[in-house]
Design a protein around this nucleic acid. Sequence first.
DNA 1: CAACCAAACGAGACTCAGTCTCATCAGTCG
DNA 2: CGACTGATGAGACTGAGTCTCGTTTGGTTG
Lengths: 150, 150
Amino acid sequence: MESSHERSGWSERAAQALAAAGYRRGGARSAIVELLGEQSCALSAAEIEHELRGRSRKVSRASVYRVIEELEGAGLLARVEVGQGSVRFEPALEGPGHHHHLVCERCGRLQPFSDEGLERAIRRLSERMPARISEHEIVLRGACEACAPR
Amino acid sequence: MESSHERSGWSERAAQALAAAGYRRGGARSAIVELLGEQSCALSAAEIEHELRGRSRKVSRASVYRVIEELEGAGLLARVEVGQGSVRFEPALEGPGHHHHLVCERCGRLQPFSDEGLERAIRRLSERMPARISEHEIVLRGACEACAPR
DNA sequence: CAACCAAACGAGACTCAGTCTCATCAGTCG
DNA sequence: CGACTGATGAGACTGAGTCTCGTTTGGTTG
């Protein structure tokens, strides 16, 4: 779990990185970046569109997907495949922010976690595989603490 | 990769398990089970529908999804989320057949792998997490041997 | 400041996987 | 052999995501 000031740093970093990549400042883009920067966990594209309709500014679906694509391309946004066809996005944090997800099969909530043992196992495996591994994604499914306390 | 006689055993097991669960024998269901039993790796729903159109018997999309759901519910079929919104299915083999996937970002091919170190890390993590973990899924992304030989 | 150009944007048509409904078909059992 | 009930197919429908194209806006230049 990350502290919120680390998050707000993200939207600034993102804005800078996009500017450096030659993108102009545009209302839709900055509204999306700002919204993402405030989140504590992943949002779906539809949630981004819907949430923005209510506040700062209405943003079209096309823009939501365009900006997601730019951010993902710049390595600033991580795509999380949650299962059942739903895809979510969240700010990609540097090194220590790297984490994976537990999806509760009961309530559907997403819970981030990280584990050094797991990362080590993946690094070792990557060296042995006959391929160049660039990313990995791990999803655990089960019942979260609230749904099945022990 | 598993030997093929292990695979053909799967379609029999699946047929038995479905019969035991009270399902009647039906043409569409057995055609799908048979096709899945022959595969060496995961198929998408559309591929199942298309492949069957050409051979044994034409099967409607509704039946493909129905049968997938039944098999998944019986723990006979594993769902593999490959990314970019595409979902594939493959026969779930007992213990030793448990594996994960490497998705090539260049050619899109799926390559199964398994690793005891990784499984161990996940078991240990599951015990420490404040949740009941029932499944896990790991996807590695990168360039496969054919696309980026080293 | 005015004018211009390219990038950013919005609206909405379109695609495609997956779901749902309902009429028809076919095992199974009496 | 019927009849009952589950299995199936056809196709309408949904919702996420993509694409196109006309409009708006940021930034730059005269």
